[in-house]
Every structure is written in C-alpha cells, then in structure tokens.
C-alpha cells in the first residue's frame, strides 16, 4: 500500500499531523521563555534530565521528519516527471494555490531553518558569555538579523501548515459537507496561532533586550 501514490499521501499526512502536534508542545514549552530565565532553564533541565526519554523523543522526531521529507521529495519528483512539457500559459484556478503549490519549496526552507535552529540552540556550547540555554537564546535574539531570519522562516512554516493541516484530512478520506469547512477554518486558525506564537518569541526577546 505504501508504495502507491495514495499510500505516500497517507505517510505525508500522518507524519505531518505528528509534526503539528510536536509544534504545539514545542511552543507551549518555549513560552516558558516569557516567564524568565529561571523558569526556562528549569524547563530545559527537566527535558534534558532523563537521557533515555530524550534520545527516544529525538529518535522519534528524526524518523518522523525523515519520512516526511523523503516521501515529499519522491512525490515531488514524480509530479514533475508527470508533466515533462510545461504549459506556455497556465492559469488553472483552484483554491489556495499559493500555499498548496509551494509545499516542496516551503518544506525545503523549513528544512534549512531546522538545521540552523538545531545547530544554534542544541549545539551551541553553553560556556563563557552564555552559560545557560536561556543566555544562548537571548544572545541570538539580541541580533536583529537572527530575529528577521526566525520571523521569516516561521512565516514560511505557517503557509506550509495552512495547506498541510487541512489537506491531511482530505488525503485520509475525511471530507464532509459539514465538517470540511470547519477543518479548513481550524487549519487556518492553527497556522495563524503557530505563526503568532512562534514569532512572538524572537520579537519579544529582542524588544526585551533593547528596552
């Protein structure tokens, strides 16, 4: 089943929904930044305390991301091959062309962001001027170029979520005249909430530093 075009879409939607759930937890946890240095460091220490759980969670996340990314690349290459000769003029209508048509590109931006993000906040050594994770976060978000980078990448992520969240229901065959509009509205609300929540962190950290 998973070899078929539909099977690959099932993989995309399950892994996508799992990432959606992770994003909510990640945001909820990181809102501890607003509670101050001590609270956030305590939260981070708690996450890192149990090594077994930490590695299990990391391994889980890595496999979810890898499945999502590799399947996406295979699907995207197949889609490209399905139309070798492009149209001179292409204006087919349809809804949400911007988000749905750029999933692979927004996905690649998110992948780049993810690599940078992990290098910064997981692998920056906590020594010298930045002895704790809070100081590491603060040092990056004191620099306007990183604030702009984070805000832009989160905006791209949100367009990805805007299409992805509701689309995953359709891929699984969940479509109903009454519930589909709700799912679409829910997807939009989810994407906007993630955008607001995640961009708030670098912006407020920067303003807090400046003010």
């Amino acid at each position: 089943m998973l070899k078929s075009s539909l099977g690959k879409k099932y993989v995309m939607s399950i892994t996508g929904q799992l990432v959606c759930a992770f994003l909510v937890m990640h945001l909820a946890g990181n809102l501890a930044l607003f509670a101050g240095k001590e609270t956030f460091n305590k939260y981070a220490a708690m996450l890192e305390a149990n090594k077994v759980l930490l590695y299990a969670a990391e391994a889980g996340l890595i496999s979810i991301f890898l499945l999502h990314i590799l399947t996406a690349i295979r699907l995207s290459l197949g889609n490209r091959a399905a139309r070798p000769e492009k149209y001179a003029v292409y204006k087919a209508s349809g809804e949400k062309r911007m988000a749905s048509g750029t999933m692979i590109f927004s996905g690649l931006v998110i992948l780049t962001f993810l690599v940078v993000h992990i290098c910064q906040f997981k692998f920056t050594p906590r020594v010298g001027d930045t002895p704790t994770i809070y100081d590491v976060v603060q040092s990056y978000f004191a620099q306007p170029q990183w604030v702009i980078f984070y805000v832009s990448c989160i905006w791209v992520l949100s367009t990805h979520l805007f299409h992805g969240f509701q689309s995953s229901f359709q891929s699984f065959g969940l479509n109903h005249p009454r519930y589909t509009p709700m799912i679409k509205a829910g997807g939009a609300l989810y994407a906007v909430s993630m955008c607001v929540g995640y961009t708030a962190i670098p912006i407020f950290m920067y303003l807090g530093k400046g003010g």
Binding site: R83, G94, E95, G101, S167, Q170, G173, L174, N175, T180
Partner: peptide
C-alpha cells in the same frame, strides 16, 4: 502525478465533479 489537494481539477472540470469524490476514493483505498 499525485494529488496535492490544490483543487484545480474541481475548478476546471466541465462537469463540476467534486473533490469530495477523491476523499471517498482515499478512504476506500
């Protein structure tokens, strides 16, 4: 190719077939 749920098919179909049929096929499959 595969379906990206972009809805161009439904918008351009001369018989205005709904993409809800695609969802039905997805769940039957």
């Amino acid at each position: 190719g595969s379906c990206t749920n972009g809805g161009q098919c439904e918008a351009e179909c001369p018989k205005e077939i709904s993409v809800s049929n695609i969802a039905r096929m997805n769940r039957e499959y």
